[in-house]
């Protein structure tokens, strides 16, 4: 799968730490790290909604489809493939 999570870039733009985001959306730091490093296999709409609400962005700002990127870290499901 070549869906890449660009959460770190958005967080940098918003000058927000992962811990602060976790507190705001009610997700543990461990789970946010799994998402950020691309080890997650799926993301719930409710999680995506909470992230977009707190980061004031669109889903497309945190998730991008990259045809070239099949095995790099930062791709959802890449760790399982």
């Amino acid at each position: 799968m070549s869906i890449r999570v660009t959460l770190d870039r958005v967080l940098l733009d918003r000058r927000m730490s992962l811990t602060e985001l976790g507190e705001r959306v009610g997700i543990t730091l461990a789970n946010l790290s799994i998402l950020k490093t691309g080890k997650a296999k799926a993301i719930r709409f409710s999680t995506l909604e909470a992230l977009c609400r707190e980061l004031q962005c669109q889903p497309g700002d945190i998730l991008i489809w990259d045809e070239e990127d099949n095995a790099d870290t930062g791709s959802i499901g890449a760790a399982a493939e």
Partner: peptide
């Protein structure tokens, strides 16, 4: 179960 564990 593994899928569920890795669903955020």
């Amino acid at each position: 179960r593994e899928d569920q564990k890795m669903t955020i």
